[in-house]
Amino acid sequence: VMAVNLVRTSTRGVRSLNQAHFNAPWPFVKKGAYGQRKIGPFRTEKNKWPGPDRQFPELSPKWNKENPAILHNYTGVRPEGYIDEVSGKFIAVPEMRTEIIAPDLTEFKLKPYVSYRTDVDIEKRRKEYEAKVREKGSEALADLYTNEDQRWPPPKMTAETLFELVYAEEVRRNYKEGKYGSVSTVSDTENPVAKSEIKETTR
């Protein structure tokens, strides 16, 4: 019986028209196959089929008799210890006990919901900013004349912005002084300007 099902698959990458290569996307089921030759799911597996009478019963590990005996008292709770194999007694392990760590929220200002007035404020800011863009002609110009915290949509954090904040000032100063070479190493982020080693080179 097995020999029939064995398929010789080619190692040369040549496609075969053997039906084994054209499997159905789901297991092929023959209804009412109770005889000696059984293809498809068996009687016990049929519990899992969808159907009007018998839906998928979630196989509870606790109540299913086919499951191992250890699971019969299964409650879904994590054990806080283990059963010693020698003495057969339960030994509690303090490290296994669940600990709920809740942060202190006394000074915390955020609440579970956001006020509906936020929408009004956002719309107000957006209109102001768009009016500014229309007045000045471009976004770059409008940004100069609006408070960054009052802009909507808020300015995006791009690689360019980060470069401006961290390196640009130093690069500009060095350019003015005619210094070229490596900028301060990235590891000394605390005071990048003071620790910088700048080689003086001529053009």
Partner: peptide, 29 residues
Amino acid sequence: YIQPEKYIEVSEKDTPSSIALTRTYVPKL
């Protein structure tokens, strides 16, 4: 609310607009 501007905030539940819209992110390399 009757009008969006006149929405009465619930002190225990609603984050006020001014706090919700503050930018707290500090860019860092």
